[in-house]
């Protein structure tokens, strides 16, 4: 075959199926990231500057608060989600299918609306306080506190913790558990030495899938936190669509967030092989 023919074959071969995608991703994934980097490192007149990053110093408390709330929510999600996933994985096939559908189903109700529904539950004159009042307990002031924000995060992101852990535990080979038990392992040892290490990849991807949206949310903090104590998401949103219009500062914060997430993912991948997506049906 001539050289030319080889090149043509290479071009029109099966790999060409990915060509439109490569062009699309270059235009709409890589180019936007490049724009974020350019905006983050330039000043209004287009010269290079690190000013935007220095300016972030004013918002250390926002960074600290966001990371703290996201961390607490992630820990709570793990504490609730791991046992739930573990229990679910031991159910019969039929129960498992039904429960997985039940866990996915709320995602079809708009998440803003679900978060908003928590407002009417937690409000001072809301459903929870009416319920408590009916049995003689004094009202709770939860709404517009960090506790309400954490509740909103746990509520919205808990399925993202349960599903990846579940999909890893359910695939663990039964014979490994039986072998451990036959060799004299107590149920506790079976869990700590067989099941827990094998479910680590699911835990890691669950932690990522909860922490990243939690640290960057601006809806939950606005609705349930009352917008008094802003989070990183609010800070970015304000720079692009809010009163404090400053896309260069917004880009710098977004860039920091992106780098943190990518570094985080890199270490996660070193620990466990990335899990494939969870099946819906």
């Amino acid at each position: 075959m001539s050289n030319n023919g080889g090149a043509a074959k290479r071009f029109f071969g099966p790999r060409a199926f990915a060509a439109p995608y490569v062009v699309w991703m270059a235009a709409f994934v890589v180019a936007p990231v490049v724009f974020v980097v350019i905006y983050a490192f330039t000043s209004g007149d287009g010269t290079f500057t690190a000013e935007n990053f220095l300016e972030m110093g004013r918002f250390v408390s926002v960074f600290a608060r966001s990371f703290w709330l996201a961390l607490v929510s992630t820990v709570i999600c793990l504490a609730l989600g791991y046992p739930a996933a573990y229990i679910l994985a031991r159910e019969s096939r039929r129960v498992r299918r039904a429960v997985i559908v039940l866990i996915m189903l709320p995602m079809w109700m708009n998440f803003l609306l679900r978060t908003f529904a928590w407002m009417s539950i937690l409000e001072r004159n809301g459903l929870l306080n009416r319920l408590l009042g009916a049995i003689g307990i004094p009202p709770l002031d939860i709404i517009y506190t960090p506790a309400a924000v954490i509740l909103g995060m746990v509520y919205n992101f808990l399925p993202f913790m349960i599903l990846p852990i579940y999909s890893v535990i359910v695939k663990i080979d039964r014979s490994l558990v039986e072998a451990a038990a036959d060799l004299g392992a107590t149920p506790r040892a079976v869990f700590t030495r067989v099941i827990a290490p094998l479910s680590l990849p699911g835990v890691l991807s669950g932690v990522t899938m909860v922490f990243v949206p939690a640290v960057s949310t601006f809806v939950i903090s606005k609705l349930l936190g009352g917008g008094k104590e802003i989070l990183l998401g609010d800070l970015i949103e304000m720079q692009f669509r809010g009163t404090a219009y400053n896309p260069r500062l917004g880009s710098a914060i977004a860039l920091v967030m992106m780098v943190v997430v990518i570094v985080f993912m890199y270490f996660m991948n070193k620990f466990g092989e990335g899990e494939e997506g969870v099946s819906v049906l």
Binding site: P213, S216, A254
Partner: peptide, 12 residues
């Protein structure tokens, strides 16, 4: 994070 994807495309 969604917000990073969103603002990046917005900038583009």
């Amino acid at each position: 994070a969604d917000i990073v994807t969103g603002v990046a495309m917005c900038l583009l």
